[in-house]
Design a binder for these strands. Structure first.
Length: 519
DNA sequence: AAGATGACTTAGAAACGAATGG
DNA sequence: CCATTCGTTTCTAAGTCATCTT
């Protein structure tokens, strides 16, 4: 069936995704179909009444072919495309801020498509509309040259607001939230804020002892609200949980953080695995990532939790007298600039610093030191519950790595035998030719052994990290000065820890951290 | 005081492109 | 040289938190 332009475009959004799991979900299908019908002409609507009677395979094939064709392009054609992209980047990807040319993070508006929410999102599959110039507000200084809207169009508004950092913004139709064009993490502005964030976290380190004695005292407070706050704060401090705002029901996936925990999300065990007063957490957090943990807690915490759960159903709020606003207000009183998330930053950075101290051995080679760093990084990722889906090809690539190791072990054994032979040969002959041959064999064995060491390290690393995402903590929670100082102290080139982009983002730390920096 | 809004950080997945090895 | 693998970059959703509005 030939479709109208609008209906066809929306159909392609679905057809493109045909081999994605999303299209098997009922919510996704229903939302898509309902929004698709809105784009149809009255005639189309009369014909197209059931999604399961629509066949998108031809559309799907078109996009598969197009991808293949793009991949098959000649070197020159690919180079040309690359140059065009670079030209766009140069023209639109930068701005002037306070006289400095700064890179923009996302300089393109988001294209239309089907909304891909995470977890059980009630709006998955809805149509995300195309952004028009008429939707976009431009923010730039009064004396600057205002960017031209595309021909025949106009901006929604041009304003000059010096109190915010965004360059352009529009409202997105699915969640009715504002989307922004902002600077790249390498910019001075973002760098300064990043530095400030870690300075606040360092200040918390100085007063956290006091805060702990305070909330311990509050566990016995006659006021229920103070008790709940004190127990919640204990979790945020000890387990690095997120604050956990109330969310509007039916608008987003059902996820929680500390303050929004419900009775159904924890189980109390008087004793578990030989430890007393154990709390078992099981809930979906940000991005619908499951948080599962069994932690022994102090007795008053346990007893308070029993109290909070009394006479409540599984769907009831655990901390019914507590909100993130009141918690943060309390924290603000304890330390200037303190909010719930600062605990996460502080805990993460201290964990990295402590783990590096515990794991690094000065006599190790660079590769082993980098492995130690990754282990320390991993400890933080586990603390913050940063997970990823096990890569689809994990088992396969693990298997190849294992066989590579086996092969290398054999090679080493052979090289050893060869070396032995060469040594005997040299002893009996004693000439320079057999000597240089012996040396050659020695070097070969060394090289192979080094390769083997590297491979087995790789294997350990891979297995331990298959479900752990290291990037998020590295980018957002670990004070880069800790890493820079560690690199300097142990003679590890910083490039082994931070790639180019990361070095640009952390330029401020590369400059300022000496080898004796302490968080 | 509560709820809504706006601005910003944090998050994992997907796309992309360079390195590696058969 | 090509296919596969793996690290990097891009994308945009989903949080946090302050401030505005009612």
């Amino acid at each position: 069936m030939n479709l109208s332009l609008a209906a066809e475009e929306v159909a392609t959004f679905y057809g493109k995704m045909l081999d994605h799991e999303y299209t098997t979900k009922e919510v996704f299908q229903n939302n898509f179909f309902s929004d698709w019908r809105k784009e149809m002409t009255a005639e189309e609507r009369k014909v197209i009444k059931h999604l399961d009677k629509c066949d998108f395979t031809e559309i799907h094939r078109y996009f598969v072919d197009r991808t293949a064709a793009r991949k098959a392009l000649s070197k020159e054609e690919k180079q040309k495309l690359k140059e065009e992209a670079e030209k766009l980047q140069q023209e639109f990807g930068y701005c002037i801020l306070d006289g400095h040319r700064e890179k923009i993070g996302n300089f393109k508006t988001e294209p239309p498509g089907l909304f891909r929410g995470r977890g059980d999102h009630p709006k998955m599959g809805m149509l995300k509309r195309r952004v028009l110039p008429e939707d976009v507000t431009i923010n730039c200084s009064r004396d600057s040259k205002v960017p031209e809207p595309p021909v025949g169009h106009r901006w929604k508004e041009v304003r000059c607001d010096r109190t915010v950092t965004w360059l352009a913004a529009w409202t997105e139709n699915v969640q009715n939230s504002i989307k922004y064009i902002m600077l790249n993490p390498s910019s001075k502005l973002k760098g300064e804020r990043d530095w400030e964030k870690y300075e606040v976290a360092r200040r918390l380190k100085g007063v956290v002892g006091e805060i702990r004695s305070q909330y311990r005292a509050d566990w016995k407070s006659p006021e229920m609200k103070a008790r709940q706050r004190a127990v919640a704060l204990y979790f945020i401090d000890k387990l690095a949980l997120r604050a956990g705002h109330e969310k509007e029901e039916g608008e987003t996936a059902d996820t929680v953080g500390c303050c929004s925990l419900r009775v159904e999300h924890i189980r109390l065990h008087p004793e578990a695995d030989g430890r007393p007063y154990v709390v078992e957490f099981d809930f979906l957090g940000k991005d619908s990532i499951r948080y599962y943990n069994k932690v022994p807690v102090e007795k008053p915490v346990y007893e308070n939790l029993q109290l909070f759960m009394e006479n409540k159903g599984p769907g009831a709020e655990l901390f019914d007298r507590l909100t993130t606003a009141s918690l943060n207000k309390h924290l603000q009183d304890l330390m200037d600039g303190l909010t719930a998330k600062v605990f996460r930053t502080c805990n993460a950075s201290l964990t990295l610093q402590g783990q590096l101290r515990a794991l690094t051995r000065a006599e190790d080679g660079v590769a082993a030191k980098v492995l130690s760093y990754n282990r320390a990084n991993r400890a933080v990722a586990v603390l913050c519950n940063h997970q990823r889906a096990t890569p689809k090809t994990f088992e396969k690539s693990m298997q190849t790595l294992r066989s590579k190791i086996e092969a290398k072990v054999k090679q080493v054994a052979e090289a050893k035998a060869e070396l032995k032979k060469a040594r005997a040969d040299h002893r009996s002959r004693g000439d320079s030719r057999s000597k240089s041959f012996l040396e050659k064999r020695g070097r070969l064995l060394e090289k192979l052994e080094e390769q083997l060491r590297r491979l087995s390290m790789q294997a350990t690393d891979k297995e331990e990290g298959k479900q752990v995402a290291l990037g998020t903590s590295k980018l957002n929670y670990l004070d880069p000065r800790i890493s820079v100082a560690w690199c300097k102290r142990f003679g590890v080139p910083v490039e082994k820890i931070y790639n180019k982009t990361q070095r640009e983002k952390f330029a401020w730390a590369l400059d300022m951290a000496g080898e004796d920096f302490e968080f």
